[in-house]
Computed example of a mutant assay.
Amino acid sequence: MDGTGGGARHHGGGRWRGPDTRGRSPLVRGRVPAAVAAAGAGLLVFHRAVPDAGGLGSLLEAFLPWLGLVVPVLFVAALVRRSAVALVVLLLPAAVWGALFGPLLLPADHGAADDLVVVQHNVADDNPDPSGTAAAVAAAAPDLIALEELTPAALPAYTAALSGEYPHHAVEGTVGLWSKRPLTGVRPLDIRPAGIGEDWNRGLRAVVGTARGEVAVYVAHLPSVRIRAGGFASGLRDDSAARLGAAVAAEQVERVVLLGDLNSTVDDRGLAPVTALLDAPRRGFALSWPAAFPVSRIDQVLARSVTVTGIRALPATGSDHLPVAARIRLGT
C-alpha cells in the first residue's frame, strides 16, 4: 500500500516535471502560453513602441488595462497543460499589470480633508430626461459639475434643475460648468481642430475661488474617434488634444483642474499633450463608457498642482456615458 501510494504521488508530480502522455517535455508543452504571457507583459511595458499606423497604437492604449485578462486565461491554460514553466512566466504580466494598474483598485485616500468634489458627465445630446440627469449628478453633492453635449433645447432644463444649489454657471457652445462658488475669468476655450467650422465650440475656462486660493477649471469635449476599415481614426481628437495641452501650458493660474470627455483613456498617446501636463487620479478605475457595459474611462478629471485623490463612476442616467465623481485635495 505504501509503495503504491508513493508511486501515485511520484507519478502525479512527474506530470508537471516530466514528459506528458504524448512525450512532450514541460518546456515544450508550455511554450505557447509562456510566449503569450511574455508578449502580454511586453505590450504592457512597451505599448508606446507599437506603431500607430492606422491608429493601432492608440487603439491598444485605449483598452490597455484589459490586457490583464491574459493572466487568468493563461493560468487556466498552464494548469491544463501542467506546465510549471508557463506558470512561472505568467508572473511577468501579472507583476507588470499590478504595478501599472493595481493602485487604482485601492480605496481612495481620505487621510486628509479633500477640498473639492467634482462631477464630470457627457449628458448625451439625445438624453430623454435632462431634469432627471441633472438631479442624478447633483445627488453626489459636488462643488462643481461639468456637462458636455448640452443642446439649446435641453439647456433650460439643466439650468432650472441645478440653479438652486449651483447659482453660478457658465456655458460655451455645448459645454457648461455649474458651481456653488462664484466663477470669474470665464471665456471660451479654443480647442477647435483644423478644418472644423467656427460654430464648433466645445471648451470653456473659468476660475473658482477657494479658501486655499484660485483654481482654473477647464471643461472640454474632444472630438470622437472612429474605428473604420482603414483603422482607428483619431486625427481630429489628437489635434484638439494638442490645442488643449497648449492652453493648459499657457495657463497663469498655478492650480488647474480639467473636467471633460476626452474620448480616450489617459494611457492613449493621442492625449499625451494633455496628460504630460496634468496628473490622473490616484485611485479608481471609474469606467464610464458605454453606460450599458462600461469598458473604458473616457470621461476624465485631471489636475495640475492639486491631487485627485480618487474617482468613481456614478449610477446611469439617460446618457450613453456614466457620470464620474472625483475628490480633489488642493494642498497648502
Rank of each mutant, 00 (worst) to 15 (best):
A242P: 12
P142K: 05
I145C: 04
V175C: 10
A99L: 09
H169N: 04
D114W: 13
L105D: 10
A39R: 01
G132D: 05
A35T: 14
V89T: 10
A141S: 13
R282C: 05
L322S: 11
A154S: 07
D2W: 09
P93R: 00
I191Y: 02
A246C: 11
G245M: 10
V96T: 01
D2S: 10
V171F: 02
G30W: 00
S234N: 14
G57R: 04
Q300Y: 10
A84N: 14
H168T: 01
T210C: 06
L147M: 10
V117Q: 15
H110L: 15
A35Q: 09
I196G: 05
A154Y: 00
G331C: 12
P167D: 00
L147A: 08
L100R: 04
R269L: 05
D320Q: 08
I191E: 03
A38M: 06
G40A: 03
A229N: 06
D268P: 14
P182V: 02
I328H: 06
W178I: 00
V28M: 10
G318R: 08
H110F: 13
R202S: 13
A280R: 14
T174H: 03
A250S: 09
L222G: 06
L104I: 04
A135I: 08
H11F: 14
A41D: 00
S234K: 10
Q300G: 11
P130S: 08
G5I: 15
E251H: 12
D109V: 03
R269G: 06
I145P: 04
L162T: 01
R327D: 06
R31V: 13
L104H: 10
T275P: 13
A241R: 04
D114G: 14
P65W: 03
A94R: 01
M1N: 11
L79T: 13
L278K: 04
V123P: 03
D238A: 11
A247I: 12
R237C: 15
V274Q: 09
T210K: 08
A194F: 04
R297C: 09
G270C: 11
L64H: 06
A325Q: 10
L67Q: 01
D115G: 07
V295H: 08
A39F: 02
